[in-house]
Design a protein around this nucleic acid. Structure first.
Lengths: 326, 326
DNA sequence: CCTTCGGCTGTTAGCGTTATCGGTGGGGGG
DNA sequence: CCCCCCACCGATAACGCTAACAGCCGAAGG
């Protein structure tokens, strides 16, 4: 090792300077550091990993990181990991079923990551989460409760409860719901909360309309809603679909919020500038990402962490919801 | 090595089976593969890297991967890399100046990535791009031309030219422009194209209004535009800001497109569901990501690749633009 | 004075893989 | 019948680092 020669010490001492500085006399340390700087030396990670068994890399398996939620979560995981000295390797999956998920995990495992965070908002992912290599530290984001790994997530149900109560409190007889795809846990949590509030209040529970998170699907379902005169309040499962619903209602001549109130979910940055500005539920994805990272840190340290970290969503009332016209 | 013992061969033969299968007799190969499967063996990447010098990991340095463009680009880079057998490690930066960029590159270098893609749509990044370690294969996405690394990008200027011509062809006397932040190359390319068309056609060139890509800024600038009666056509530098402009115009009682035409840039999935549906310029971020990856592959192979790959943007005409009222 | 201890540094070995070279056996050509 | 060559496989030595132990030396204590 050149640095060792230049500093006039052994390779071992260089290693110590870099990994346990206080075990080396200050003067020697200074000499070594000078040599390190002089030669612009950087330790070979592969060699270090070979002997220590740790790579300092975390893996994130996620569905389509183009979506707002996963992208925000990933971003915050990455920030938290970097601050703690970890690198982050990603496996972004177009679709998330058991097979593709296991493939993603397998890839990261082959890369010898120290731990994995799975952003798995699908029912079908749970299946995969139950069959992971047990020796690998794994935590999940947005997963169900019946899985053997710690989970960080936003309390979808609570968010839906809040927004539905908000609409009822405005005097609406009941609330329609444009939901997300069947397979998504977020969809189901939001349906659950919405249904719970309606049933508790003894209100009729309209049929659930299924979208696919896209504005296009919101538009199509909005056209159907616009034709039912008794619809006065709609809770849409995300802001993109809500945009489509708003447009469909307007095209049909139904005013928002005078004739129909519309609420969304997510609080994407644009929703405050919809027409009208959208009442929605803010999810703190960053918080979720940070929680996931810390859960993983615990798991890697071997301590059994909490099983769940729930983040509370927040109702943001804007101008798309108002008193019932009736 | 257990696999070698179980298969009754040497470690070297196992290595050959995994890396150059045709150099091993079919029968032996089968025996080794059986042993591999039996023991669920997976090669140690660290050891392999130590001797070959390659890690099979690519690094991506990007600004805020929450933004639509960077997120899409990252996603497609990741897909392309995965298909080619590479893993992808990310360094997502809140802001992109020379220091933070070098820090990101440094991090990835310490992790011993085989190459780096820098998503660097800032002027100030160019400075950093000129001072990179020369032995490291690097390509850039969305960077300027005066840098010593290959670049893949959308031809911003061409997009701006198309949309501005479109507006002039509708009979508008001139076109106002809501631009992105000063430091962004995308902003400048779009301004350039816009200005070029106006000047070529001998039209007055209004003062450039500066936004920050957010709907909020679009809204604020839109309020100013709404007060100038002579404004009949606005080219907004991205779709999010266009959303804000649309709202500001509507609040001021100016109809789109009857009184004022508005066009955006990016074609985010939501823009087709704005009110009215937005005329905009589609950027194929996926294409850019794939190009960047292949440029990097060339650079890693040592062949000097093309210096630039320009992706052509496409004008998407919807309902937010129409004939001049004059 | 010797012993002991602790702070500091060096020596050795080994992590799991592949590059390189060398060996072995069988088949074809002279 | 011999020789050479080719296909296949094994032995050895790295790659760069750190764990574990060993050694040295000066200070403190008996």
């Amino acid at each position: 090792m050149d640095v060792a020669v230049l500093a006039g010490v052994s390779a071992m001492t260089v290693s110590r300077v870099l990994n346990a500085p206080d075990r080396v006399k200050a003067e020697t340390r200074a000499r070594v550091l000078a040599a390190v700087a002089e030669l612009d030396y950087r330790p070979n990670q592969a060699a270090r990993q070979l002997v220590t068994g740790r790579s300092g890399v975390l893996g994130v398996v996620s569905i389509d990181t183009t979506l707002y939620g996963p992208a925000s979560t990933l971003y915050c995981i990455e920030q938290a990991a970097r601050n703690a000295g970890f690198n982050v390797s990603i496996a972004s999956l177009p679709s998330l079923n058991r097979r593709s998920m296991e493939e993603g995990v397998e890839r990261l495992r082959a890369q010898a990551v120290d731990g994995v965070i799975i952003v798995a908002p699908h029912e079908s992912a749970a299946d995969g989460l139950r069959h992971l290599p047990p020796e690998m530290p794994v935590v999940a984001v947005d997963a169900g409760d019946d899985i053997p790994v710690p989970v960080a997530k936003v309390d979808q149900r609570a968010g839906a409860v809040r927004v539905t109560r908000h609409l009822l409190s405005l005097g609406h007889r009941t609330v329609w719901h444009v939901a997300g795809p069947v397979d998504w846990l977020d969809s189901n949590g939001r349906i659950e909360g919405w249904r719970h509030v309606l049933e508790s209040a003894d209100r009729p529970v309209p049929e659930v309309l299924r979208g696919d998170w896209s504005s296009r699907s919101g538009y199509q379902l909005g056209q159907r809603l616009a034709q039912e005169p008794e619809v006065t309040a709609v809770f849409v499962a995300n802001d993109q679909m809500a945009l489509g619903v708003l447009r469909a209602l307007r095209e049909a001549g139904r005013r928002v919020p005078e004739d129909v109130s519309v609420a969304g979910f997510d609080d994407i940055p644009e929703s405050a500038y919809y027409w009208p500005p959208l009442t929605t539920v803010r999810q703190n994805f960053g918080e979720v990402g940070r929680h996931a990272f810390h859960l993983l840190l615990d798991r890697m340290a071997g301590t059994e962490p909490d099983r769940r970290r729930l983040v509370e969503p927040e109702l943001v009332v804007r101008e798309s919801t108002g008193p019932s016209p009736g």
